[in-house]
Amino acid sequence: MSGRNDHLADGDMPLIDDIDLSAYLDGEARPGDRRRIADAIESAPGFARKAQLLRNADAKARQYGDALLASAPPARLCVRRMVAERRAKRTRRLVAAGVVLTIAFLSFVGGWIGHGLFHQQTFIARSFVEDAAAAHTVFSVETRHPVEVTALESGHLTAWLSKRLNIPVTQADLSGAGFKFIGGRLLSSRSGAPAAMLMYQDAEGIRATLYLARNRGAEPSSFRFFSSSEGRTESVYWFDRDISYGLTGAYNRETLLKLAKGVLKAMDGA
């Protein structure tokens, strides 16, 4: 490139090289060189012929190019299809992300609700067993009127309580465990619904009470234990579909559990 401007000094015979000519034919010659190149082609037939040869070369190249492209483009080069596939892929990805987000959201909501339900369950169960323990504390110490209806009228008692509580109340026979049935009474409960208490007594005159109510929203459960805040009594309580049971006494858990199983067996038999 550097050598070609040397010829400019050559006055009458303007010299141009192949690069000049080639660029001129492409319309890419520098503006300052155009006049000079055009003049050279005009004045020297050799340059014009050369220009024609270069043009022929381009024509040959184009023929070559056309011949190369003998086959139609394969389907995989269809841009519109590529775009559609990309869009479909993106949609699938969005759907997948949406599914993940939805699952995450539902898990969160489920957790939230479950958490609430758990608390609600805990609350229901806790209220019930506290009522049972409180009733025991109040009535088990009574000497003259521990019960409202005595064991002598047990048939009347169970029929009455069954009717008021709207659950089948039976007088469980716990004599096998050394407990004698004394009687029972109707009670109120924290929920405002009626409850019943059946009282038993061992050979030493120590009492155990069975507190019953219609189950209001507690999940059926197996035996659970509760110690009153004073620590004087233990309770075992459980829920079935219809009935809530709370057995309380100043006994250890093994004894209470044995009684609870006796109650359960009697109720199943009912």
Partner: peptide, 8 residues
Amino acid sequence: SRARRALA
């Protein structure tokens, strides 16, 4: 230019 020249 070299390509065209060679081809020509």
